[in-house]
Design a protein around this nucleic acid. Structure first.
Length: 340
DNA sequence: GCCGTTACGGTTGAT
DNA sequence: ATATCAACCGTAACG
């Protein structure tokens, strides 16, 4: 019930988590970092007190997409039956009342109203004819309601499809786009103490309060800094997505609101990405462990590199193949760390 | 022991 | 304003 953030529950390993919600980015990042340092997943799981299934999932996703961020939660998929499409269907039907749904589908493609990725199925077209167009005599009304003709472009949000079609339609979505730049600055701080011990994590209070849990905003929020180095090139898959959706702006604001209890409200703001952030608490320890070298490497403190970026694909459907793709590079590239 | 997978109970957000 | 629904979450447990 209460949602607010709820503090979390404790898993078998002693780690705190909030059921139904993504792990804080700070932890996600650490998972990736530790993996890059060569720590085995099972050890990462134990050290961070995150279930191995989750570690596995996060690493697999990172290898695949280059992003550490969780996927987009909630919302609805973009509808293929945009007002514009419905309108075209109506026009076709009006022009030829005897037209078959499959013919309409072909015309939508032929006329460029839809591309193969977003063309409605024949059954959808039939439904549209039945429900929205019905007898097609009086078009007027409907339009008004659905009218926004173009919609799509404004995307502030991830799923947008160009309804007009983009070239190649390729990618579609851009989900949460994301790039994060994170940094690893965190550690700096104190905590380092135990690697294994990592108590910080365990303490619910710490977590809840301190960081992360952001109350609302999903994470991709912030994020991308223009600067990510090179990372992307890496795999080549796609990277284009740089969209910028930044929503974090407001986030901060509301965040503060939300985060009530947090003692350190500030800390969490956007935690990770914003660039500022820094929360320091809990995660911090990485330093000890992880970084021996990074520390050294870190050149500029502030620069933290980007860790991940990329989009997560929304095409979940097709994504099924796990890792394989890039792996090594991924690794190397990781957060900029290497390169820069 | 390790790890990929998946059922489960959960949250979210657009419609 | 409420309810649906589909997307995602992490844990736990199976193999």
């Amino acid at each position: 019930m209460q949602m607010d953030q709820t503090y979390g529950e404790v898993n078998q390993l002693g780690g705190v988590f909030v059921n139904g919600r993504p792990l804080p980015n700070a932890i996600r990042i650490r998972i990736v970092e530790l993996a890059q340092l060569g720590i085995r997943p099972c050890d990462i799981s134990r050290q961070l007190r995150v279930s191995h299934g989750c570690v596995s999932k996060i690493l697999a996703r990172y290898n695949e997409t280059g992003s550490i961020l969780p996927g987009a939660i909630g919302g609805s998929k973009p509808r293929v039956t945009t007002p514009n499409v419905v309108k075209s269907i109506r026009d076709y039907k009006q022009g030829d009342p005897g037209i078959f749904a499959w013919e309409i589908r072909d015309r939508l493609l032929a006329d460029g109203v839809c591309d193969k990725y977003n063309v409605p199925s024949v059954s959808s077209i039939s439904r549209i004819l039945r429900n929205k167009i019905g007898n097609l005599s009086q078009p007027s009304q409907y339009d008004s309601k659905t009218s926004p003709p173009q919609i799509s472009y404004n995307p502030v949000y991830p799923y947008s499809y160009p309804n007009t079609m983009s070239p190649t339609g390729s990618k579609l979505g851009s989900p949460p786009a994301v790039s994060v730049s994170l940094s690893r600055a965190w550690p700096s701080v104190h905590t380092v103490s135990n690697i294994l011990g990592i108590r910080a994590f365990m303490d619910p209070a710490a977590i809840a309060g301190s960081e992360s849990y952001q109350p609302k905003m999903e994470d991709w929020t912030g994020v991308n800094r223009p600067s990510f180095p090179s990372v992307h090139g890496v795999n080549g898959i796609d990277k284009p997505p740089l969209e910028s959706d930044i929503k974090y702006t407001q986030a901060s604001s509301n965040l503060s609101g939300y985060v009530p209890a947090c003692a350190y409200s500030a800390t969490n703001q956007y935690g990770v990405y914003g660039g500022h952030g820094n929360y320091g608490h809990w995660q911090s320890q990485s330093a000890g462990l992880s970084h021996p070298n990074t520390g050294t490497m870190i050149q500029s403190p502030n620069l933290h590199s980007a860790l991940s970026f990329k989009n997560t694909s929304r095409e979940a459907v097709e994504r099924k193949s796990p890792l394989s793709k890039h792996q090594h590079e991924g690794l190397s590239a990781v957060h900029g760390l290497s390169d820069s």
